[in-house]
């Protein structure tokens, strides 16, 4: 369970990234965060694994205030929260297997990882993860030989190999075309259901949010302006969140193609 209690974040330059956020995310939920560019979606998601540190309030993950974490506690926190990025963030020159095995770093001792002494189970797990996102045949390809969609699947496999309790995905489909976007979202949803991993995804696209989310959180200017199940969401909800009428480019489209 993740609990934001009056969480605020002011960046060093004075920008308020988050303002008095109060949100509770329950285990197993698939939450989509929507909001205009600059609304604070990334700041919200990156607070959970402490890539950024909120400056006020308390943020509980599994009943521990992670804002007090340092050193080894932080490593434990990050080991149980997997992250997926808009630009996949793979090591382009390394092969797919090595990239996926990097998901085990938090579970592996420094010495073992430096001498490439991966445990047999870890390699097995990596291969299994690649199979789950249907990309096992590319195991020895260099990451930069893959298409965007394939790279994002590899990055999902990396997160799977990490065996996290939470998955944070920051705009995972923003660089992909509509059919590939749906494919990636489908994998994320499937993993959420099969492994019961709590998943939080930032999305720009209204139609995708509606299609995959259990619950939608709307943000504007660092504040949560909507929070509710998808069943309660309509077009006017989005107009409220965005503070303007809905446009063509708020939709990804292409749902039927894949």
């Amino acid at each position: 369970m993740i609990e934001f209690k009056d969480v605020g974040l002011v960046y060093p330059n004075g920008t308020e990234g988050l303002k008095k956020i109060n949100v509770t995310i329950n285990d197993g939920e698939f939450v989509v965060i929507v909001g205009l560019s600059g609304a604070g979606k990334s700041t919200f998601i990156r607070s959970i694994n402490r890539l950024v540190t909120p400056t006020s309030g308390s943020l509980l993950v599994d009943n521990e205030d992670i804002l007090k974490y340092r050193g080894s506690d932080m490593r434990k926190l990050r080991t149980k929260t997997g992250m997926i990025f808009q630009n996949y963030n793979l090591v382009k020159r390394s092969n797919v297997l090595k990239n996926v095995l990097a998901g085990r770093l938090g579970h592996t001792s420094t010495l073992r990882s430096i001498f490439n002494l991966h445990k047999k189970e870890d390699v097995g797990l990596a291969y299994e993860s690649l199979q789950r996102v249907n990309i096992a045949e590319k195991i020895y390809n260099r990451a930069d030989e893959l298409s965007g969609g394939q790279q994002q699947r590899v990055s999902i496999a990396r997160v799977l190999t990490q065996q996290p309790k939470y998955i944070l995905a920051d705009e995972p489909v923003a660089s992909l075309d509509p059919p590939t976007s749906h494919q990636v979202m489908t994998y994320l949803k499937k993993i959420n259901k099969e492994d019961n991993i709590t998943t939080i995804v930032n999305l720009h696209f209204i139609d995708m949010a509606m299609e995959y989310a259990d619950r939608i959180i709307g943000m504007r200017a660092g504040e949560v302006v909507f929070d509710g199940p998808v069943s309660e969401v309509s077009e006017s909800t989005f107009e409220e969140i965005y503070g303007r009428s809905i446009r063509e480019d708020d939709l990804r489209g292409g749902a039927d193609e894949s």
């Binding site: 694994n49 890539l51 490593r75 434990k76 926190l77 990050r78 080991t79 929260t81 997997g82 992250m83 990025f85 630009n87 996949y88 963030n89 793979l90 090591v91 382009k92 020159r93 390394s94 090595k98 990097a102 998901g103 770093l105 938090g106 579970h107 592996t108 420094t110 990882s113 430096i114 990055s155 990396r158 997160v159 990490q162």
Partner: peptide, 27 residues
């Protein structure tokens, strides 16, 4: 170098040496 993979490894719980070894050295 591309800092993105370094961030990914940090986010997955890697310590400083692991991040350098896995994300920086290959680059």
């Amino acid at each position: 170098v591309d800092m993105n993979p370094l961030e990914a490894m940090r986010a997955s719980g890697g310590n400083v040496l692991q991040v350098i070894w896995y994300a920086l050295i290959p680059q």
